[in-house]
């Protein structure tokens, strides 16, 4: 197993790779491609870089979005629909803000580079948003929302897992209907990291009503923790340590 960490997108992205048939040079090349993709996406979608495409888009300086920007807008529109408006990239002050899903989306694109290179197994962890190549399972600890050195559970991941929290960097969660946030943290396990990311964010905002949305999606499970420390989980949510 090879592990690497790259500082990008305001966080640390770590890779855990089983090279399989690849030699060291091939693996390093693949990691290099994945990291370059992450940096390019960061340059394009950073809200902190005034000349990023996203910043310029928000400032009304761009009339025709790039195909990547188009893709992100589409994803945000889909996120709005699936969460009944609880994930609303247009609700935040300052304009369109897709940061709730860009990190997970970027991690999946990074994972694609590793898949195309032909590694036997890979896990990409973008600041807690995790996706893995299919065919293997990984045990992922879920950080305890109130105790940073502890976990509140372990889940078996064969696709993706995402955690959202109000204490998370950059998670400026706002309830689009001006209600209080239901949770302080939420985790969703499923196939697509982008969808896990979206649902985890929506779970923090909407709580139980989003658990019902998750119940309706095959292969997705999740839970949220409310401010009092109670945990609410979808029916088939399973922890490896139970």
């Amino acid at each position: 197993m090879i592990s690497r960490a790259e500082e990008v997108m305001g966080t640390v992205v770590s890779f855990l790779i089983d090279p399989g048939p690849l030699d060291e040079y091939q693996v390093e090349t693949a990691i290099g491609h994945a990291c370059r993709e992450l940096h390019e996406l960061d340059d394009r979608f950073s809200l902190w870089k005034p000349d990023s495409e996203l910043s310029r888009w928000r400032d009304g300086l761009i009339s025709t979005p790039s195909s990547l920007m188009d893709e992100v807008i589409e994803l945000c529109a889909g996120a709005y629909d699936v969460t009944h408006g609880l994930f609303d990239a247009w609700a935040l002050p300052g304009g369109f803000d897709p940061t709730g899903l860009v990190k997970g989306w970027a991690a999946e694109r990074a994972l694609d580079h590793l898949a195309r290179a032909g590694v036997a197994g890979a896990l990409v962890n973008a600041g807690g948003d995790i996706c893995v190549l299919p065919g293997r399972s990984y045990e992922v600890g879920i950080r305890h929302p109130f105790e940073p050195d502890a976990m509140c559970g372990v889940v078996t991941v064969t696709g993706a897992v995402a955690t959202s929290g109000v204490y998370e960097r950059g998670a400026h969660l706002v309830h689009p209907f001006a209600g209080p946030l239901a949770g302080v943290a939420a985790t969703v396990v499923g196939d697509s990291l982008v969808l896990c990311d979206i649902l985890a964010t929506a779970l923090v905002v909407g709580g139980a009503e989003v658990l019902y949305v998750i119940e309706g999606l095959a292969d997705y499970e999740g839970f949220f923790v409310d401010p009092g420390g109670s945990m609410y989980a979808s029916q088939s949510m399973r922890f490896s340590n139970d």
Binding site: N125, G128, I130, G141, R143, M151, G207, A233, N241
Partner: peptide, 30 residues
């Protein structure tokens, strides 16, 4: 919250050390 879902209160806290896991998910305090 007026919850309709059944609350599962987890009280145990696992120390990260000594547990076999591959990675960690969680919002980090940064």
């Amino acid at each position: 919250l007026a919850q309709q879902a059944l609350p599962i209160l987890k009280t145990e806290v696992l120390q990260a050390q000594g547990t076999r896991i591959n990675s960690l998910t969680g919002a980090t305090y940064t």
